[in-house]
Design a protein around this nucleic acid. Structure first.
Lengths: 345, 345
DNA sequence: TAGAGCCTGGACAACGTTGTCAGCCTCGGG
DNA sequence: CCCGAGGCTGACAACGTTGTCCAGGCTCTA
């Protein structure tokens, strides 16, 4: 009995289909479809019978089949670095809100900062025929997306620009934010200011470093190599880097931390110091105002970034958008104490 | 020209199909399918030709069609309360890790603690024919899931049990955790201990309240009504509640905070007090160790909860699982200072 | 050298839905 | 009373893929 075999091999649990509903209600297939989709042209009486059959059988429309027929999936993909990072929670949430407002579901995945995994994820999402993609890129070459773009998959990059393709990107003014943060320290009398950041191959890290250098140069302060630590990322190495620049021959009186994880580690190190060292961090951290002293930060608005990106995505889908653009959102310096400490030699 | 009209109405951007690839490679449709899926029985030479055509056309398999044919979607749904809540980031991430290990994608949505929205989301996921669901319930009646369960959708509830249906659930030992936390305060000499928690209709909140009462009763301490604040959830009201129990006629010397949001607000309130008030919070919070004093908490392992739930989900899908079970994970008391303060009257 | 068996490739149906179109039935007007 | 219009309804094909099954060509052995 090939029929039976086929069913057991390809299905598990037998879900009722429109055909089953039609049979039970004694109507045609298409009539069921009309009722399910709220299309006009069905007698109230017929509709009632169909609805009854639907409820009795526990019918649920199969959206895979629907998608196959209609072309659009009403779902968008979000590829980010790590959902466990507090920066991405609100971002993801705001993207979801916008998607919901457009009747779309959100599928997401974490790249774990691995370019290969990013590509794998993005292509899996494309295979699901998501209507659009919001990508926080891990890699720096996105030419693999060209066929998708050509096929009409709306795409917006977030936090960092796409590599080697022309696409929308929404990001913070990393350069300006870092420059302002460092300038803030300079304004409070600091001259020996340390910088701890991620690998400069990451766009945001490079921009923030550039901001640091610009602020120093604007103030006419030459930067010692020992003040900069680039590419350290795990807490242990950040800790060592911080300790070194605090105890070297030319010790810093203030530190600019390149991202939230670095900031947290630096706070721990500073808490152990007897000397009061000023600190400004990029990215806000929770409870920053409750620490002693409060932590001064350059804050990005993750929710706003996500919202902007998602809205742009749907405008691409509406077709009301023309050429790719780069949208830079301002950052905000939040003073809470740690950045206003005077230099202590 | 109905053909043209159909295409423009249902598709946007023309994606190549296996048929197109087959035509270009000069082979049959099924041969392309074999190459795409790595099935055996294709000459290396033929495979090369097919692969070339795939690359040239930028072909990407349409998983909607595949799903329609195969029955399984290799995707699971996660419905949680709010991705922006720091508890759910790690949870979501660990569910995703497990899904990835099983070759599945994760679709997620936030219910915003609204039962209707939860149902809407869950049903949308079912319409997508997700293979399984991990749900952090907002509502307390999940009978609407019965047809889905019967149809074989694997389902695991997290953090709170399902309402009115029999399903797997993975949660923390909320009762035991709260009891231990309060007992810890009692052990440090406190007798007037406040409790601030969410609405008792939420299972976790009710259990934690029960733990509080049990610890007090075990110690033979009668509880004054003015020590308990139930159902407050927004920061402003939590603040008022905390201030009241601190300044009443029978002021508390310690507070047990029922969840992380409450804890944060209580910390702010206590920081303004001259008197030293002890605090133990349910749920860990970031940087809790850097505050003065460090915040003692009853910690849940969000990642472990997510992992456990997801693994159980896939075991349901393997068919290696029989009856629904309730899995309770232990909590961990982390002492950091605030819970060890002596009573100060 | 013939027959058996294997390997490769392709034709075809089916998955569940929706768009198209044609047929039926009813109702109102001539 | 008949005809046309318009409202309901259902038959059918198509979306892109995969499972089944068969044909044809090859190799290997007796």
């Amino acid at each position: 009995m090939p029929q039976t075999h086929l069913r057991s091999a390809t299905r598990y649990g037998n879900r009722p289909t429109m055909k089953d509903v039609a049979a039970r209600a004694g109507v045609g297939l298409k009539t069921v479809s009309r009722v399910v989709n709220g299309e006009p042209g069905v007698t109230p009486e017929t509709e009632r019978r169909v609805q009854e059959a639907i409820d009795a059988l526990g019918f649920r429309r199969n959206d895979s089949a629907r998608v196959l027929r209609k072309g659009r999936t009403a779902s968008i993909g979000l590829v980010l670095e790590d959902l466990a990072d507090p920066f991405y929670g609100p971002l993801s949430r705001s993207v979801e809100e916008v998607a919901r407002a457009h009747g779309a579901l959100l599928i997401n995945g974490s790249s774990a900062e691995d370019p290969e995994r990013e590509q794998e994820l993005v292509l899996a999402l494309c295979a699901r025929r998501v209507d659009g993609l919001v990508v926080i890129p891990a890699g720096d070459d996105h030419r693999y997306l060209e066929p998708e773009l050509k096929a009409g998959v709306a795409t917006v990059f977030v936090d960092r620009p796409a590599g080697r393709i022309d696409a929308d990107v929404v990001l913070s003014d990393n350069f300006g934010g870092a420059r302002d943060g460092v300038a803030h320290l300079i304004a409070h009398g600091h001259r020996r200011i340390g910088f701890i950041g991620d690998m400069p191959r990451i766009h945001t890290a490079a921009e923030r470093l550039r901001g640091y250098r610009a602020a120093m140069e604007d103030a006419g302060i030459p930067v010692a190599d020992s003040w900069m630590s680039l590419g350290v990322t795990d807490p242990e190495r950040v800790r060592r880097a911080a300790e070194e620049m605090l105890s070297g021959p030319d010790p810093v009186t203030a530190v600019f931390a390149g991202n939230n994880r670095v900031t947290v580690t630096v706070i721990r190190v500073l808490a152990e110091q007897t000397r009061r060292v000023a600190l400004v961090g990029f990215d806000d951290i929770e409870l920053a105002d409750l620490l002693q002293p409060g932590v001064t930060v350059v804050a990005q608005d993750a929710a706003e970034i996500g919202r902007t990106a998602a809205e742009r995505l749907f405008r691409q889908l509406d077709g009301t958008l023309a050429t790719p653009e780069r949208i830079e959102l301002p950052t905000r310096l939040i003073t809470r104490g740690s950045g206003e400490l005077p230099p202590a030699d």
